[in-house]
């Protein structure tokens, strides 16, 4: 009996070790393939030039249009998401902190919205464009991606704001501060690392998502000059070039995938480092 118990424990322990190891190996495998394939196709030309004539038949040029387009799009929509999301996240923890039912309902709503796939936002954005009479452009892309990342941002920021001790609010009230001052000065300061993580998370989602911009942002070989111009994005650049039968064009998709992965890695790293740096202000 004792022996069987031990055997069972040993069996599952090894199974769990193997499974955990396999997750790490798959992770390394993915990174390895993306880096190796992308490195071979990478050149300075890729990240410094717009597509030249005959680019999609394997001639010269790069994907600067998609890199800059993606950065514009992600920065614009992160800014809009900040405008909408910051007050709601702070309000949920300061203004309405006593209305637990209402805050609970908003959290429920955010959870539901958080899981809605980006393709649904893309389809809705397309319907909205037809209604507002705007064509596929940077603006339409920013609107769609904003709707998509607002719940992500609020949820992430709210997680951290909830950990701010209630005593701080009481202390601030007793010193004569009003709700806005408590929210934007006390609570925001306390949750600053979480705020940065949330912003970077939303930015990363915005820059990496393809399905929501497929219908709404269009595609062009040029860097957009105004918000009404269509814009190229990195995920779509990868997607379109990978489906090309020409090997040189395919190779560029690998390079573009490496650039996108590198951006995501940098975001992840900055998020970690800055969180550490801003922690010193926290009580």
């Amino acid at each position: 009996m004792q022996k069987r118990k031990l055997l069972e424990e040993q069996f599952f322990l090894w199974l769990m070790r193997i499974v955990t190891l396999s997750i790490i190996l798959v992770f390394l495998f993915i990174m390895g393939v993306i880096i190796k394939k992308g490195y071979h196709a990478m050149s300075w030309e890729m990240i410094s030039q717009e597509p030249q004539g005959g680019f999609y038949f394997g001639k010269g040029g790069g994907i600067l249009n998609a890199i800059v387009g993606s950065l514009y799009l992600a920065a614009g929509s992160t800014f809009c998401a900040l405008l909408l999301g910051l007050p709601v996240a702070l309000g949920m923890n300061v203004h309405w902190v006593t209305k637990t039912k209402f805050v609970g309902a908003i959290r429920f709503l955010l959870n539901a919205l958080w899981g809605v796939p980006s393709i649904v936002f893309g389809a809705f954005g397309f319907a909205l464009m037809a209604y507002l009479q705007i064509r596929a452009s940077l603006l339409a892309g920013i609107i769609t991606v904003t709707l998509f990342i607002v719940p992500i941002f609020i949820r992430a920021f709210d997680e951290v704001l909830r950990t701010v001790p209630q005593g701080l609010m009481e202390a601030a009230y007793s010193l004569g501060a009003n709700r806005t001052q408590i929210a934007f000065i006390v609570f925001f300061r306390q949750a600053l690392p979480g705020f940065i993580t949330a912003i970077l998370l939303a930015f990363g989602r915005g820059i990496g998502d393809a399905a929501s911009v497929l219908f709404t942002a269009g595609y062009t070989d040029h860097i957009p000059q105004t918000v009404q111009d269509p814009t190229a994005t990195l995920p779509l650049a990868i997607f379109f070039q990978l489906s090309s039968p020409i090997p040189e064009v395919k190779a560029r998709a690998y390079a573009a995938a490496l650039i996108l992965t590198a951006i995501i890695l940098i975001i992840s790293l900055v998020s970690r480092l800055s969180t550490r740096r801003f922690k010193k202000n926290i009580l």
């Binding site: 990496g208 393809a210 995920p235 995938a257 995501i264």
Partner: peptide, 8 residues
């Protein structure tokens, strides 16, 4: 964080 297109 890896975008879905990269998984693709």
């Amino acid at each position: 964080g890896i975008p879905s297109v990269v998984y693709g």
